[in-house]
Amino acid sequence: MKVTFKIWRQEQSDAKGALKSYEIDGLSEDMSFLEALDFLNESLVLKNEKVIAFESDCREGICGSCGVFINGRAHGPHDNMATCQVHMRSFKDGDTIVVEPWRAGAFPIVKDLVVDRSAFDRIIEQGAYITAKTGTAAEANAILIPKEVADSSMDVAACIGCGACVATCKNASAALFVSAKINHLNKLPQGQPEGHKRLLEMTTQMELENFGSCTFTAACEMECPAEISISSIAEMNARYIKAKFFG
């Protein structure tokens, strides 16, 4: 299988970047997309060129490290799939594949396809936790949590923090990510004592990090590898209004 990659190359965050073309032959359909990039990188090394920097780790769609814009879509042509789960059989022999990094003001490019997503970590630091020290827990079954509550909490807790929601959003809104984390904890009885504080502090940080506001294009819902629904954002809004007006 032969394809032409057009890949964004950029030396460092303040350098100017551009798309660069690489023709590559000898790929197989069973290769994952990232393995095709590995393959390309190996050929670059042998040609004495610098490898293309891209991020990936677990390569099974759970760690959230990988993430690039492939042919105009976050994580490639399929819905709800991480970049590492895309395989070359999704492309045709002779295709041109354009690969760009996540684009968002809050995610500055580090190098080539690697972006800095530490804004997410800073949002998490603003309260995406339950303030309880190790060693202070009561017996687990002392807190009964209805199955539906645990399940709906798990639905949003599944977020892998890849940043596709931000990258695909025309507003670079982090609403899906932030709402997922807030709802995960605020739905559970353990998370409720600090619920309002968490909500206000995390959303404030979200704005400080220069993420845009959600206009419900729902693109994020389509690209999210964890299939988190935009109803999560609506739920965060409901919690916000409740926190502001009803204390």
Partner: peptide, 22 residues
């Protein structure tokens, strides 16, 4: 056993039975 208590306290959404127990 105390580790499960700990993770429940930290908000891990473990699978539950309909009655609310783990």
């Amino acid at each position: 056993a105390p580790l499960i208590d700990h993770f429940v306290q930290q908000g891990v959404p473990f699978a539950r039975e309909y009655g609310g127990v783990l």
